[in-house]
Nucleic acid binder design. Structure first.
Length: 457
DNA sequence: GGGTCTCGACGCGAGATTTT
DNA sequence: AAAATCTCGCGTCGAGACCC
């Protein structure tokens, strides 16, 4: 879980003279009557503060915008469709903003914000700045009149001028809100907010001003990052597995088996952590479902994206599990081919299945078959260490049974007879009870193994 | 006064980049 | 590899400015 606290700086073009927003910011309707929106707490409205002094003869934000336009010395009449003001909302993650307020640092936070606004957009262009304390998170509403002095960005591509135009300040929201400039604002604002424990948000974020959703969004992104990190760990563990497989190739089987078991443990633990994160993410999503439903903006897209990515990560994790499973089967198959003696009973019978009731106080129950003849037997109080070796995968079922049961104990009388007859037919001599070298019989073993599938660990 | 130019806003689309 | 998304430059539009 993340403790990252983000600085929030959101710019938006105002439409017309932006008087609608003036009402919201100043908590007054168009006739100057006090009005508090539903999401604000009227008991706290008195804590709101106007931070920029209006010029002489100017009494509100709308007039302040017009005053700046009138006195800027613009060389061109302002068009009907031009943006006259840019609204800027400045805040941070709810938790950190509350901490700043509770630590009595709100005034210095405000000073730093005013300094940044004036330095970035020009003191004259900052016509209004209001602190809101009556909504969930303390925040500032700043108003900028986008008056710039530089040359138009597209001037160059338009080529030679045919008319002489006056030079001087221009009103251009396009210029102020150019992509490169927005980038610069985010960077410099984050730098200015660093002393307050706030950092830059995700580049490219479309996040809007809504503390709860901001928190939720960050959580989802954090889960996604954590899951991605775990995925990398799983991959590393996988690489380790390859090394182990190489040991196996060199014949160091016991070492390979042991290491393999460790790696499987690691991978299982990582997968468990991934699953836990997925579950936490889903829980969070449920918790915020009703809130999310209300959001029909860029947030929704971003959250969905994060969730999609997380789900993909989960899918990939499952695919990796399948790879591990396939590798395990491959090891098993190779081991059977390289060491057939590890997979046959000393009696020559087929081991149908075994059952160990309890590895702490172990007993071994076996089922064997020769042709159609079935047999079962149980031994109690068997050797603890041997049972543990079986439990750890160091010995096969057959090796375990051979260690516990003598050859004659593995079969019934009838089975023994059949075994004798079968060996006589196949090899022209009496039955060889124990096959210790692994030099033969491997191909005839295969159909048995097929039959045993599903009955064994 | 009318034709043409300039300006800012907006949207399109080709190419680049990222995701599936 | 294909689809989706992002970037960035450019064209167009409406409105104001300039010039004859």
């Amino acid at each position: 879980m993340s403790n990252t606290q983000y600085a929030v700086c959101h710019l938006q073009r105002g439409s017309g003279n932006d008087s609608g927003m003036s009402c919201h910011i100043e908590r007054k309707d168009t006739k100057g009557k006090i009005y508090v929106p539903v999401n604000a707490n009227a008991d706290r409205t008195h804590l709101n503060r106007e931070l920029v002094r209006f010029p002489e003869g100017v009494s509100n934000r709308t007039e302040a915008i017009q005053h700046r336009i009138d006195t800027a010395g613009l060389r061109r009449k302002v068009g009907k469709n031009q943006t006259k003001a840019i609204r800027i909302i400045l805040t941070g993650t709810h938790e950190q903003m509350m901490k700043i307020a509770n630590d009595d640092r709100l005034d210095s936070w405000i000073d730093a914000n005013l300094k940044w606004l004036k330095g970035t957009f020009g003191e004259e262009n900052l016509v209004s700045c209001v602190l809101h304390m009556d909504e969930k998170t303390p925040h500032l509403h700043a108003t900028i009149v986008p008056i710039v002095t530089g040359e138009r960005i597209r001037r160059k591509r338009e080529g030679e001028r045919k008319y002489e135009t006056k030079s001087g300040p221009r009103l251009s929201a396009d210029d102020v809100m150019r992509r490169t400039k927005l980038h610069e604002y985010q960077n410099s604002y984050a730098a200015a907010m660093k002393p307050f424990g706030l950092q830059r948000g995700i580049v490219g974020s479309t996040a809007k001003h809504q503390a709860n959703s901001e928190y939720y969004r960050q959580q989802v992104i954090q889960y996604e990052e954590d899951i991605a990190k775990l995925q990398v760990d799983v991959e590393k563990a996988q690489e380790g597995r390859s090394t182990i497989l190489a040991w196996f190739g060199k014949g160091d089987l016991a070492k390979a088996k042991k290491e393999l078991a460790d790696k499987d443990g690691q991978i299982a633990e990582l997968n468990r952590q991934i699953k836990a994160l997925q579950a936490e993410k889903i829980r969070l999503r449920e918790q915020h479902k009703s809130e999310i439903r209300k959001l029909r903006n860029g947030y929704q897209v971003e959250i969905d994206k994060a969730i999609r990515r997380a789900e993909t990560a989960e899918r990939q994790s499952e695919e990796k599990d399948a790879v591990i499973d396939r590798q395990r089967k491959l090891i098993d198959r190779l081991d059977r081919m390289a060491n057939p003696q590890r997979y046959s009973l000393s009696s020559g019978a087929e081991l149908v299945r075994i059952n160990v009731s309890n590895y702490r106080n172990p007993s071994l129950h076996i089922w064997t078959r020769v042709g159609e003849e079935l047999f079962e037997d149980t031994k109690f109080q068997i050797d603890y260490d041997m049972a543990q070796r079986h439990f750890n995968g160091q010995i096969t079922d057959e090796e375990f049974v051979n260690a516990v049961f003598e050859p004659q104990e593995q079969v019934s009388g009838k089975q023994a007879e059949l075994l004798g007859a079968a060996f006589t037919l196949a090899a022209g001599g009496p039955a060889e009870v124990h096959v210790g070298t692994g030099s033969g019989g491997s191909s005839s073993n295969l159909p048995w193994r097929e039959q045993k599938k599903g009955n064994r660990r």
